[in-house]
Design a binder for these strands. Sequence first.
DNA 1: CACGACTCCTGCTGGC
DNA 2: TGCCAGCAGGAGTCGT
Length: 277
Amino acid sequence: MPELPEVEVCRRGLVPELEGALIKGVVIRSPKLRQVIPPELLSLLPGCRVMAIRRRGKYLLFDCRKPGVEGCLIIHLGMSGNLRFVPHDLPPGKHDHFELVLADQILRFADPRRFGVVLWQPGPPEVAEQHPLLANQGLEPLSDGFTDDWLHDACAKRSGPIKPVLMDSHMVVGIGNIYASESLFRAGISPVRAANRISRARYALLVPAIRETLSDAIAAGGSSIRDYVHSDGGAGCFQIQAGVYDRAGQPCLRCGGVIRQIRQAGRSSYYCPRCQH
DNA sequence: CACGACTCCTGCTGGC
DNA sequence: TGCCAGCAGGAGTCGT
């Protein structure tokens, strides 16, 4: 479900209530996610204070500490995961796999498809990213280093179509299937164009398009942060008005042409053949 | 090295 | 109305 904007909005929603909070208990209801939830969390986390909540790509990092214990709780929401604050007396649902019990509420992790991850990396905050799942993560697209020159160079040896390349988290993190299509539409670049055959000038359009697509989505989600982490049902997911995503056969909002759906690397891509070249 | 196919799991949708 | 194939916003691994 979530791409970078959804994870970032989730993080911002957690901060006011979780940062500085004391973890009183831990519940592992079904340990089998993409990887098994480490059972040692049951003894490590209770008594810990959450010192900070960070994000790396689509991973959430909770820096935890108590006397004799320091480490980072790593959570990835996968395709269908979400984190919610719920009251102590709310019975768990079928897919509620993990929770942190706090003084006055519970932080509950639900994930129907079980593609998510809950892991532990021992040590101080600065070594958290040495975890194998984080060590090879690419550049943050909202960081200063993400420039047209950088992306142009990074794509120099990528002869495949640009859209799956944008989704490669070892190069750039956080761009999933929706925002890859949306960013390319915004930049007027075809998803099937070979990454190493796009000019530097057009990367100078693509980089701000990616930035704006992601920050617009964060802004859209930010307006409903409380719903996002407190909702007792609802979608638990927000989306910006899509220009092309899931609009196959419908008119392009820019030129009126027909939006086309194709398949790339096993995923659906959407684009306007008249606007994108 | 770069790339695509395959894999994990459950739920929903659309076509018959 | 019911059934089933196909698909879903992720990402690691493996074979080529």
